[in-house]
């Protein structure tokens, strides 16, 4: 398995190259001009042109791509056009909020969704099942920002329990840290909870109809053991797959959630960079997201062997 993991990690290199080429090309052909944004409305056309030259944006595509690739190979993601700060520094500033938000969301979603899905499968066809499914549809259908504003209105403005916006690093205390992340986690997690609960329910329904489950029940195994020991473990492979794939969903959702709750994370950095055409930052963040996604999928593949010993690499 170790050799497999190493092979997979090495396989990310060509994937990253393709991603890099794709992102760079996409940004190259996309309309928009950072020089015009930097110059501002009071600048003359000549100023805009001079700024463009000073940023090297007038250089040919291949020269710019080559320079960028050379920087990446040397571990340098470049410097932001706008802030004049290294992209690695900007990413480092934003990792804690996003990582915290995503980890909390995944934990929250699993803790809520898996029992809900199991419950719905166990009580299949009853009102409990229908309620879980309705919650699932709602969670998936209502846009993140609608939930965001609604929860902020109730829990921040009306009850004054939680802040409307912002992020407190964990180094400044666990409760202030958690306080700022409760609403964003719930908002971001709802769609994920819906997805996971539905998948868990469907997989559990399938597993619960298997012969070995009937045998376990015939042997007098208790309901809880049947559900959580025999059935859930065997239903885990598709659930883990969805958890892995859901990371992409979370990255997308984090962009909106971080904007609504003004969390200084990678999602907001991405949006700001796109709106300003801050090419080095966009390229750096997209590369980081791609690496994360590839590694999460690797972890998921490796987890399969834990849940299903028949799988070997």
């Amino acid at each position: 398995m170790f050799a497999y993991a190493v092979r997979r990690v090495l396989a990310t290199i060509p994937v990253m190259l393709v991603v890099a080429l794709f992102v760079f090309s996409l940004l190259y052909i996309a309309p928009g001009d950072p020089a015009a944004i930097i110059a501002g409305d009071q600048a003359t056309p000549a100023d805009v042109e001079r700024i463009r030259e000073s940023l090297g944006l007038d250089r040919p595509y291949l020269v710019r791509f080559g320079d960028w690739l050379w920087q990446i190979v040397h571990g340098d993601l470049g410097t932001s056009i706008f802030t004049n700060l290294p992209v690695t520094h900007m990413i480092a500033q934003r990792i804690e909020p996003t990582l915290s938000l995503m980890v909390l969301t995944i934990v929250f979603s699993i803790v809520i969704a898996v029992p809900l899905g199991v419950l719905a499968a166990w009580k299949h066809g009853t009102w409990i099942d229908r309620v879980v499914m309705v919650v699932g549809v709602l969670g998936f259908s209502v846009p993140v920002f609608v939930f965001g504003y609604l929860l902020a209105y109730v829990f921040a403005l009306q009850l004054n329990w939680l802040p409307v916006q912002g992020f407190t690093p964990i180094s400044e205390g666990f409760w202030p840290f958690l306080q700022g992340l409760i609403l964003p986690t719930v908002v971001l997690g709802l769609a994920y909870v819906a997805l996971l609960a539905r998948i868990t329910r469907a997989t559990m329904l399938d597993v619960l109809s298997q012969d070995y489950v009937r045998t376990a029940r015939a042997k007098g195994v208790g309901q809880r053991a049947v559900l959580f020991v025999h059935a859930l473990k065997n239903a885990a492979v598709p659930i883990v797959t969805v958890i892995g794939n859901g990371v992409a969903l979370l990255i997308g959702g984090a962009v909106v959630t971080e904007s609504v709750f003004a969390i200084p994370g990678l999602g907001r950095l991405t949006v700001d960079a796109i709106l300003r055409r801050d090419y080095p930052v966009i390229q750096g963040v997209v590369l980081l997201f791609s690496v994360t996604y590839v590694l999460v999928n690797l972890a998921v593949d490796l987890l399969y062997t834990v849940f299903d010993p028949r799988i070997r690499y």
Binding site: A156, L157, N160, P163, V164, Q165, S259, F261, A262, R268
Partner: peptide
Amino acid sequence: WHILPDPGTASAALQNGE
């Protein structure tokens, strides 16, 4: 300076005394 690009969030933060 707190950068709050979303007007709804800025409005709520002001009302909430943040």
